[in-house]
Write a protein that binds this DNA or RNA. Structure first.
Lengths: 113, 113
DNA sequence: CTGCATCCGATAAGATACTG
DNA sequence: CAGTATCTTATCGGATGCAG
């Protein structure tokens, strides 16, 4: 698939493409408070499998939103944290939260076809 | 898949789930300026197939972000437009645009593995 | 024109078991 | 703990053809 939608700003499209990948927003969100370990994120997102989390973290690292730090302790400790680029997304999450509180009914069944 | 991530706000999760579906953000964005016909949106998003656009519009209609108006002219004219709930997302897009301008390099190849 | 139905291949996600 | 390998299943998206 060649992304050739000329009418829109290329940066905007790329940003949307990035953020609209499943789980990405939720993972970034769960890293906002600070560094987290793999298993912490897993606990925070119980319906996200380890494999997918692993994939996403690698992608997020590759595009510079997440940093992976290895502390050679015993046993080794690995922490994931947001880069400046990643943290710069926080206003977005505030907006989503506000929008959700105004417009989303938590009991109403959402579409998932 | 049962959404049982207890640690996070249910509304927030639903909102993210909604918005992180592929094409949704781009479709909403292209409706921000005003009502559009099916083929207008198609032209704006050349790499989006008619079937997927049709699917997404139905989903967006079902969750109340988009309204579908039929004008029984000859030939019939059908227009899609944002509801208040949909228009309420516009601050979000401003944020994304700002973030993209600061952090996304349009030439750099993005991850799409 | 504006879609919808169907088929089908490509991806993505999930479960489970296993490694350093 | 932090993943990886493998397999199976589910979902997505593109093409085509058809209907109002």
């Amino acid at each position: 698939m060649e992304p050739k939608q000329g009418q829109m700003c290329a940066r905007f499209e790329k940003a949307v493409e990035l953020l609209s990948k499943r789980w990405v927003a939720l993972i970034v969100y769960s890293l906002l408070p600070g560094p987290r370990r793999f298993s912490d994120i897993e606990q925070n997102l119980p319906s996200l499998s380890g494999k997918v989390l692993s994939d996403r973290l690698k992608e997020l690292e590759a595009c510079g939103l997440v940093r992976r730090d290895v502390y050679p302790e015993m046993p080794v400790r690995i922490e994931y944290s947001l880069t400046d680029k990643g943290r710069a997304l926080s206003p977005l999450f505030i907006n989503i939260t506000e929008w959700a509180h105004q417009w989303i009914d938590p009991d109403e069944e959402q579409i998932r076809q």
